[in-house]
């Protein structure tokens, strides 16, 4: 098993596990964490890919750097929304259904 393959496999493993986490965990912070970890899985893959040839390829590194910036801002935004949601309705879970979807109560 070459290092590249190892990185690849572990990255895919992390990606899948975190995807599972994103789906099954209801708590918003866990979901955000899962997303972050997924991002890391991709970065892992990219760094692995960079080591493929004789010389280290700089392009994936640039991508990882950019990706981290994006991930940071996305996480920040997600946390802000999660916090506001908690403030508005007092819980940190997403309802499984849209609250206004099937409710009989109507505005008026």
């Amino acid at each position: 098993m070459s290092p590249v393959t190892f990185y690849l496999l572990s990255s895919v493993g992390i990606f899948v596990v975190c995807l599972y986490g994103l789906i099954v965990h209801a708590h918003l912070i866990r979901k955000i964490l899962a997303l972050n970890m997924m991002g890391s899985a991709v970065f892992l893959l990219l760094t692995g890919v960079a080591r493929r040839g004789e010389l280290t390829d700089p392009v994936p590194h640039a991508m990882v750097l950019t990706g981290i910036v994006v991930a940071v801002s996305a996480t920040a935004f997600a946390l802000a929304v999660a916090r506001r949601l908690y403030e508005e309705c007092g819980r940190a879970y997403l309802p499984e259904e849209d609250p206004e979807d099937l409710s009989e109560e109507r505005e008026g």
């Binding site: 918003l28 997600a78 929304v81 999660a82 949601l85 508005e88 849209d98 609250p99 206004e100």
Partner: peptide, 10 residues
């Protein structure tokens, strides 16, 4: 800033 908007936005 409604709950429904926030949760669907999330």
């Amino acid at each position: 800033r409604r709950q429904s908007a926030l949760s669907s936005g999330m």
